[in-house]
Design a protein around this nucleic acid. Sequence first.
DNA 1: TTAGGGTTAG
Length: 495
Amino acid sequence: MSQKHATTLISSLCSRGAVCHARALFDEMPERDVVAWTAMLSGYASNGLRREALDVFRRMVAAGAAPNEYTLSGVLTACRGPCAPATAMPLHAVAVRRGVDRMPYVVNALIDSYASLAEGVVDARRLFDALGSGRTAASWTSMIAGYARWGQERTGLRLFKTMLKDGFELSTFACSIALHACTLVIDLCLGQQLHLQCIKKALDVNLAVVNSLIDMYCTCARILDARSLFDGTPERNLITWNTMIAGYSQCDPLMALQLLLEMNDEPNCFTLTSITSACADLAALRCGKQVHGAVLRRSYSDDLQMGNALVDMYSKCGSITNAKNVFDRMGCKDKFSWTSMIAGYGMNGYGNEAVQLFSSMIHAGVHPDHVVFLSLISSCSHAGLEDEGWNFFRSMINEYNLQPNKEVYGSVVNLLARAGSKWGEYAFTRRSLRGIGSRKEAGISWIEVMDKMYSFTAADSSSPQVCLADEVLHILSQHMDDVGSEFCHIIFKAT
DNA sequence: TTAGGGTTAG
């Protein structure tokens, strides 16, 4: 077999996923030119075998074969994202040395690789700007996707509009990325405009576009629009099902379970995470345990998001021992894992455990946010740990420089109101809160509410909660909507 | 004979 034929065969085998056969053939080749090396490494890269792709590249260089523009764009594909086996920079240097760094495919692959890391977005933009009129549709989409990926969705959407102004046709790629950006910033209006454009240009037959549309409608609380698209799609893939199930798990958990039963595909890790979350919302412990069994059978236990969802589910189902078991077995934990477990302790009345776990979290080097403090203060409130809760509130502001949001204020008010007879000990409340500064929420300053509560308490310390009730309820009825629920809970209990 | 961009979970 000639080298040319062998190379064609390697490429063909890889495109069908038969990478091992391709590699066997590659190893048997007596001689390999740059095309053969490139076919092998690109084959690995396109099958997600990134380390292998990079390994072939290194062996190729060691063997003295000179990489060309095809090689560079192939190996750069393997070097995207935070888990990439290498970063773009050394490959960029190779491309410069070989004189191929300005070739369109190579530049686009470089933009894509740089923009796959948060710290590389600026470098990607520099390359993108330098391209000028040499930009292709792929340059635009890689750059827009880079912005959307790293929290600069608005910049991405502005670039998307510039792209259209510059005369580039709306492609399925650009459209799905732009829709994803709309989803991230919850821009239903732009999302709907894009939907209309999709219909006009017949892009709505593309599954990635449809999936992005479904996701956008689910996130923008238009579940019926999402469902109508879902029902109207003749071809659905696992992502379509997962997106719809995830949408339902947020607003109609029973329907999420129903959809799982209708699904023909084998559920994956994404599916089971959403289903676990649906079970959590329904407090359906038996169902949740079955899902956990399915997770174990499929070896999804090591997945971080899956673990977090299971901790949350067991916590909300009141099974704190199971929650802790899952938490302890998690090989890798993030902020959400700790928050779910702390909140789990709190909602099940284990205030001391929540406080201890917070210490462990700090010890583990995880930086707390509003949600952690909200869980903690709420845990302390439920467990009668007023002093601890109040100290956490102060530490949130003074040590961690976090401005309390309305939920945290609500929880603190709850904490103080529950203190009951100890209320007098919090005489410093008003002064301390004044120090924080006034915060207007829904037309009323929380400080004003706290002031009111304080003044009524001071006026009749024998029955502070009852005294609070009428006045606070009056304020709430005039100015509060959803944020008042925590107050109302206290008030109804007190009166 | 070798190369590119997109969509799903807490």
